[in-house]
Design a protein around this nucleic acid. Structure first.
Lengths: 112, 112
DNA sequence: AAGCGTTATGTATATACGTATATATCGCAA
DNA sequence: TTGCGATATATACGTATATACATAACGCTT
């Protein structure tokens, strides 16, 4: 069974910046309130998740995620309004692209 | 400067089958009439190009590329009509997706 | 039979990447 | 001041991928 796949992402000066991975991470952070739990739940190492957050915050005009350490619960992570906005727009773009792909059946027809 | 990137490809039973790489290779083969020259021109090792052609021909209903060895010119490679058809349809899909991406400016606006 | 240019194929090396592991740091609460 | 749970950071290791290199096989032409 052949299927058309599509992936979109945002680059900043040729460097990968925001894509499906970061988008899922932001969603998990929102659910969990913790970077380590978010990373674990999506099968990503904490280190990779942490580095990803650094890159996101560096390249964005304003931080997308705020990390807090120490305190009553040991710390935590939260998605900023800017983070929410990007998630919303990114998923919006993905939806539009998926619609185009769903309409396209000619390619699959050739491949059988 | 932030830019939206998009990539589409075809999978067969979860395995990558046809995408931008194979598409460029087919185009080069058509131009060069030789797999080794096609691979060299696009900076791909001959071995990788050869394995790619094997995968393409195995997963497609009919061969997309025909390789001939020996003979007056040592051999050669040519794209079959089925290969041409897939190139055409794939580039058609890419064009449609690019149009959607070009229209989408909200995401970039959020990122600045 | 020899030469040519291309396809065909294996092997060893290098490189990148993710992962695991270990440890330090922080700040509130008890 | 001690403990807790989370963030912060470096190092080593294993695996997958890509590359380089070497060589065989092929079939037409001369």
């Amino acid at each position: 069974m052949k299927k058309i796949k599509v992936k979109c992402w945002v680059e900043d000066e040729g460097e990968k910046f925001y894509g499906p991975g970061p988008n899922e991470l932001l969603k998990r952070i929102q659910e969990e309130g913790s970077l380590s739990r978010a990373a674990t739940k999506m099968g990503m190492s904490y280190k990779k998740a942490w580095e990803l957050v650094q890159r996101l915050n560096q390249h964005a005009e304003e931080p997308l995620v705020i990390l807090k350490k120490g305190g009553q619960h040991g710390g935590g992570a939260e998605v900023t309004p800017q983070g929410f906005e990007i998630m919303r727009e990114f998923e919006n773009l993905q939806r539009k692209i998926d619609e185009v792909v769903d309409q396209q059946t000619d390619l699959i027809k050739v491949l059988k």
